[in-house]
Write a protein that binds this DNA or RNA. Structure first.
Lengths: 227, 227
DNA sequence: CAGTGTGAACCTTTTCACAGCA
DNA sequence: TGCTGTGAAAAGGTTCACACTG
């Protein structure tokens, strides 16, 4: 079959498959089965097959998938055949770390500019990039043809930065600030909230502690919703 | 009612509600409705009410929720009434940025140690912390009673670091390395993959470009799975 | 009477299980 | 024979809509 409209959950896993496939290719593997790919991606094989089936029927029954061909198809689907100029706003600790992050360039995301609102930081060099002032955002976006922007500012500045990004023509935003931002419908936003991840871990950690404490007694386990 | 076993999706949103509630409290609000909280958290009000109902019936019909009381309940549920000692492995750019990240301490996550495998980095000071050698992991975990570990190493080192963390007694891991790690069932793992987020944005960005290019012509839209 | 709490409907995602093909 | 591709079933999550109540 071949109908399209790839589920969101699948889109979220394609990059994981891609990484695993590239590793396989580097190790010289020519073919891979859904089971092996599942193992490498940390999911089950049915999920791999379903996910890949949304891209098309690229496997060979009884054999598996051609690694190189599948890499090509996944890249094409994700839009990674072109490279993406990325703009970073906020030259603090996180902005620095991301600007220097090798994983981005390796995957076709080129950091083309870093801007900040502090005069002190403007002019600072980060790798091959010079920090510019945020007031020049519009010109920079046009100059670099950036479609993706990354927010690495404190929470208080996030909404204003998002508004300025949108006004400057940015259409996809990755938000690291711990704040909810609102943007027009034509703009995509994804958020990465570092402390939320720790809070989720704390929840499950605490839950384990409860289970541990009452091991053997069902009543307390039921109370905690443990099956 | 009051049955428990909070859905994962809800657990993931509680920290967002908590942040919004704390902001509200700081602005002096005493009561809040599901609609207002929904607005602040970027979700709809039915979801807020469903989510909060898993914690108990803490609202007042016709009125809303008591902000301070709800903050207390959400904190308790997430296990944030205690503070959590956190260990970071990897003192590179990202390790530095996270060690200095204010948002962690503000929410009760105290970075108690940073370790690295490079002799060059051992002894370096990051804020009030001195980088130690990873070989001392076991002692450090015992000394600090750390339950949560953060992996900020390159992908190639991630699995080994995870193994060493588990051996040292860490029970929750936040993995920033772009690699799938496997751990025993009693250990929780969450991953944050920076370049995956950009890849997902690229997918939707490319999708928009396709839609833009063929605006008016249905055939190509159907091909791209656009409704 | 405004706003919560919640069954019921709906939609998405995962898993199962097996027909079909190389 | 072994592994893909996929309907169908199951599980999980979201939204609706309204009875209920302070």
């Amino acid at each position: 079959m071949r109908v399209r409209a790839i589920p969101e959950a699948t889109v979220g896993r394609l990059p994981v498959y891609l990484r695993a496939l590239v590793e396989m290719a580097e190790r010289g593997a020519a073919m891979i089965s859904s089971g092996e790919l599942a193992e490498a991606a940390g999911v089950n094989s049915a999920k791999v097959r379903k996910d890949l089936s949304y891209l098309g029927s690229y496997g060979t029954r009884g054999v598996g998938y051609d690694v190189a061909y599948l890499i090509h198809q996944v890249r094409r689907e994700l839009g990674l055949t072109q490279d993406w100029p990325v703009l970073i706003v906020g030259a603090g600790n996180l902005g620095h770390a991301l600007s220097n992050y090798k994983g981005f360039t390796e995957r076709g995301f080129r950091i083309v500019a870093v801007v900040d609102n502090s005069k002190d930081r403007v002019g600072e060099r980060i790798g091959s990039i010079t920090v510019e002032h945020i007031d020049r955002l519009g010109q920079i976006v046009r100059r670099e043809d950036a479609a993706i922007g990354v927010i690495c500012t404190p929470a208080a500045a996030a909404q204003e930065v998002a508004d300025r990004m949108v006004a400057a023509g940015i259409r996809s935003i990755l938000n690291f600030a711990p704040a909810v931002i609102s943007v027009p419908v034509h703009v995509s936003v994804r958020k990465v909230d570092l402390s939320i991840e720790l809070q989720i871990l704390a929840f499950y950690e605490q839950r384990k502690a409860v289970i541990e404490a009452v091991k053997g007694g069902r009543a307390a386990l039921d109370l905690a919703g443990v099956p």
